[in-house]
């Protein structure tokens, strides 16, 4: 690890944050275009060439809207809840490595903001704190639909967090570390698969964990088919029913940024992060690869939303505790046994 001056880290953090915000804005554009294509329609076309300025127009519109606070609302909580969602979503990106240490501009630069030794836990922890924003916002709205949405969010996130965390245990055991940088570097070693030599991406050795992680990640970010807290058809947007203007857009930003962060996280954990052909020689290819991998995940999110109906609350809980939890524990046990056997410690 390279100790670089703090101001460089600040610059990099500033860059990442802006990339995330712009990425989020264009994520909405990407989603609308993709949904449009899947639903036989055009998506945004009017604002700018091919509707490319649509996210910016939406942002300006949201800034200009009236900021309504219901009279019965708990004003301070109502004020802070969206910020919790937004901040916790964006903080997760601090530990995502976009590459190793490179030599550019005559210096050694780290392509990550920080390398925490518990990086993976850091991401999980902040995504768990994010749900407080939802619950508090729902409570502060003093609206019954919001309240039900908040209760659903609490139950859902508590259940799926367990799956999310446990599904990664296999990866941690294989990598021997919780640091995302170590996990990334571990996946750049080669793996012999008979005649083939491939990079040791953890999706190959942990396919079940990958599937479970993806299911739990969709639930954790409250996206279809697990978008129960904001179930539009019965709860009329659930926890953010009473939010308007830029307060609403903080929820919106938070949701999309957490999708992007989870996608980057998944790419780092299971798809080798920046690894790919030529990435060891050219660091910019690595950044490109991790972004492409994240976009594949984001496309997957949109695809799910366009295709699947929504689960019912009890079915969602049943799925988590009766199906996913046994599977994830099975995965841990099998991985641990194999790991021990390969080290000659078993039997």
């Amino acid at each position: 690890m390279n100790d670089q001056p703090l101001w460089l880290t600040f610059i990099f953090a500033f860059l990442i944050m802006n990339v995330l915000l712009i990425g989020m804005a264009y994520m909405t554009y990407f989603e609308r275009k993709m949904l449009g294509a899947m639903q036989d329609r055009m998506g945004p076309t009017r604002t700018g060439p091919k509707g490319l300025l649509q996210p910016i127009a939406d942002g300006i519109k949201l800034l200009g809207k009236e900021d309504l606070i219901p009279r019965a609302a708990d004003k301070w909580v109502f004020f802070f809840a969206p910020l919790i969602v937004f901040v916790t979503a964006i903080v997760g990106a601090a530990v995502i490595p976009f590459g190793g240490t490179i030599n550019a501009f005559g210096r050694d630069l780290n392509l990550y903001i920080t390398d925490l030794n518990v990086g993976a836990l850091f991401v999980l922890a902040f995504s768990s704190i994010g749900v407080y924003g939802i619950i508090l916002g729902a409570w502060a709205s003093s609206n019954r639909y919001s309240l039900l949405g908040g209760l659903r969010a609490a139950a859902q996130v508590v259940s799926y967090e367990i799956i999310l965390g446990l599904s990664l245990v296999g990866v941690f055991m294989l990598a021997g570390s919780l640091s995302l940088r170590d996990i990334m570097l571990e996946q750049q070693t080669n793996l012999e698969l008979g005649p083939l030599t491939v990079k040791n991406w953890f999706i190959l050795s942990q396919p079940l964990a990958f599937i479970l992680f993806m299911i739990a990640a969709v639930a954790e970010t409250n996206r279809a088919p697990f978008d129960l807290p904001e179930a539009e058809s019965e709860l009329v947007s659930g926890f953010h029913t009473e939010y308007s203007a830029f307060r609403f857009s903080f929820y919106f930003l938070g949701e999309y940024i957490s999708m992007i962060v989870v996608s980057l996280f998944a790419a780092t954990l299971f798809l080798g992060g920046p690894s790919g052909p030529g990435s060891s020689d050219h660091w910019y290819l690595g950044i490109l690869y991790i972004l492409i991998k994240a976009i594949v995940f984001l496309f997957f999110y949109i695809w799910l939303r366009a295709t699947l109906p929504r689960f019912r609350y009890d079915q969602l809980m049943g799925l988590a505790w009766k199906v996913l939890l046994p599977l994830v524990i099975l995965n841990i046990v099998v991985t641990a046994a194999i790991r021990l056997a390969s080290d000659g410690l078993l039997f």
């Binding site: 639903q39 939303r305 295709t307 699947l308 929504r310």
Partner: peptide, 11 residues
């Protein structure tokens, strides 16, 4: 759409 299958209504 009520059950959550968004695209169906457009089709």
């Amino acid at each position: 759409l009520d059950i959550g299958a968004l695209s169906m209504s457009l089709y």
